[in-house]
Design a protein around this nucleic acid. Structure first.
Lengths: 194, 194
DNA sequence: GTCTATATCAAGATAGAC
DNA sequence: GTCTATCTTGATATAGAC
């Protein structure tokens, strides 16, 4: 944002994610992040003046990565009423996203202590939802796909999902189908390697 | 469980919920709970040997209240493939449940620090889901209803829902409809005063 | 922009009296 | 079963040198 080289910030957020992923959210302390990132506590506090600021930084990165994922997925899916819904579902269940559920859990947890932190996410969601309906997908159908996708993500984030791998795949497929039902009969491409 | 009068435990959990609801999850300290419940820190620690134990107590109550709500709702809904799904949706969106979303947020947040805490919820969910499909509702449809309901609850719990009141009502209605679609044409009772 | 050192504080947990 | 008093820890934040 300000200085040209936001490299330290990135390194610090990398370290914070590692701490959460490898040691658990409860070990996300400024101390642990500082030593792992290679900067001192003072250096860390220069970039993120407090733990809350660090969490915001982590959230920002999570959000921008989601946006990038969606942009990438969009390219591979033909236009039509179902497109944005499929983009959303596939991006949410993208392997790269799955791998960071610990980070998401940590950020959500801190959002319980300070709900203001998550306000930007609500705005993201509002936009995504508008996109879902823009090309003709009905509101209720869009909402159900959006909610079920988020529901699965939340359950997994907190290790509460009652589904096994096979059921999970079936459900994801069902959500994409649900998006396509109101759309043109031509089934969209479904690249195997996705 | 052990002593006959579990009254102190109840009083303590009452206090803990009040603290969370009135002052926010970050003010849920053993100190605050003790003073509000009328017992001392020592007394509190006798009943709940640590904060984690207190959170477990809060979660247990949340779970049993959900089970009771579902039992009550079930009585007012005619049997059929859609019944359990409607029970689940209505119980989840019951006003009494909505009012405690702060408590849910606090418990979930602590679940991020210690995932073992939430394991019983996964088991509850597994049972609920089995119930949803038991009377003939298709698995994928049941899963979508279950997930979308949970998705909405989670979003609201963390103040991230992009929906307004009217949209929310429409979505809830759509979920109940989704449950009924595969079922008998006779529309179930929908008591106004619920 | 980054470091060391230190101040401050609050929370969880303990010990033992009543 | 409940209380008071105390201990210990660990985390956030500050001040000021380099």
């Amino acid at each position: 944002m300000k200085g040209r080289l936001g490299n330290s910030r990135e390194k610090i957020i990398d370290a914070a994610e590692q701490v959460v992923l490898q040691e658990g959210a409860r070990h996300l302390t400024l101390d642990a992040v500082a030593s792992r990132s290679g900067v001192s506590r003072g250096g860390l506090l220069y970039h993120f003046p407090g733990k809350e600021a660090l969490l915001m930084g982590m959230l920002d990165r999570l959000r921008s990565h989601m946006a990038e994922r969606m942009a990438r997925k969009r390219a591979g899916i033909p236009a039509g009423p179902a497109r944005e819904a499929v983009v959303f579902v596939r991006s949410a269940f993208d392997e790269g996203n799955d791998r960071k559920k610990g980070v998401t859990a940590a950020v959500l947890a801190s959002g319980a202590h300070d709900p203001r932190l998550l306000a930007p996410v609500r705005e993201d969601f509002r936009r995504y939802l508008q996109d879902l309906t823009r090309e003709g997908l009905g509101f209720e159908r869009a909402a159900v796909i959006f909610l079920a996708t988020n529901g699965m993500k939340f359950l997994e984030t907190f290790s509460m999902s009652p589904f096994d791998e096979r059921e999970r795949r079936d459900i994801i497929a069902a959500l994409e189908e649900l998006a396509g039902e109101g759309a043109s009969p031509g089934k969209e491409t479904h690249p195997a390697g996705e």
